[in-house]
Simulated assay, not measured.
Amino acid sequence: MKRSLILAAAIASLIAPFGAAAHKAWLRPSQTVLAGTDPWITVDAAVSNDLFYFNHVPLRLDNLVITAPDGSQVQPQNQASGKYRSVFDLQLAQQGTYRVAVVNSGLSGSWEENGKPRRWRGTPATFATEVPKDAKNLQVSQSLGRVETFVTNGSPNDTALKATGQGLELVPLTHPNDLFAGEAAKFRVLVDGKPAAGVEFEIVRGETRYRNAQDEIKAVTDANGEFSVTWPEAGMYWLEASRQDDKTSLPQARQRRLSYVATLEVLPQ
């Protein structure tokens, strides 16, 4: 009995980080709409209890992908990570819209070895060499998550907004840097490039530290994978959704966990 309880706890620990409501991952740019020949922004990246304050851990930037208005990949500058946050600067040399995203993909596994639970994290490439072929009570899950934001220099465009066809993605039907309080915005949600119905989004305005209620907005995608939201007031908003399925890329993995987070700025009228 004790052994089974330990193993169950180990398996649960692989799932809990994705569903822990108290800790929210996010990217927050210093500005989202700019105009100039060579402007810069600074982006904070963290996992916190309050939006958008640094009070838990920094968001790792190992898998940071920045897509420029022409679809090319550009590099951040002055990247650093401290106790509670990561930070980097971005030079907006091109006119148009940038997509700034941290995209994480991997596998988590647990098994029993000599009466003790073992845990593993890695990729499909390392699974064969790092996990015993005869692992007892092996449980493997796959995860694919995206945390992103959008910034526009000058006139917006949509080249960087195109979906990759991998995992859970948000395709803005209303441009993400053209959002205003009191107006409705529309989005399409894709899973592996196809419209996904029934995906529930939680939408929360920042500054939760200074109010007793989260005041979250709930939205669910329709049969076309679309949903709309009317912004109650100006501010930085955090959008989050997750989904589970069995469409794994590794036969040993029984489930796949998809997650999506975006930070959007809503401007006053």
Rank of each mutant, 00 (worst) to 15 (best):
V204N: 05
L170Q: 11
T152K: 09
A163T: 14
P195H: 07
P156F: 07
L173D: 03
A196E: 01
A181M: 06
Y210T: 02
T164C: 05
T208R: 04
Q166Y: 04
Q214I: 00
T159P: 06
L170Y: 15
E169Q: 08
P195V: 09
G206N: 05
E202Q: 13
F180N: 08
N224G: 14
F187M: 13
R205D: 06
T164Y: 10
G206F: 06
R205F: 01
F201H: 09
D222G: 15
K162F: 05
T164L: 05
A223W: 08
L173T: 03
L173V: 02
K186M: 04
R209T: 01
N153R: 13
T159F: 08
S155V: 14
D215H: 09
P172N: 03
G167M: 00
V151E: 14
T174C: 04
L168Y: 04
Q214R: 10
P195I: 03
Q166T: 05
A163I: 06
I217M: 12
V171I: 11
K218G: 02
P172T: 06
N153C: 00
N153S: 00
G154Q: 13
F187A: 13
T174L: 02
D192I: 13
P176L: 06
I217G: 02
H175V: 08
E216Y: 09
E207T: 07
L170I: 11
V151H: 10
V191M: 15
A219L: 09
A223C: 07
L173E: 10
N212L: 08
R205L: 01
D192Q: 11
D192S: 11
K162M: 00
D178E: 14
V191W: 09
A163H: 13
R209G: 01
P172A: 07
T159V: 10
Q214G: 01
P176Q: 08
A181C: 05
G206V: 02
T159I: 13
A223R: 13
L170S: 13
P195C: 07
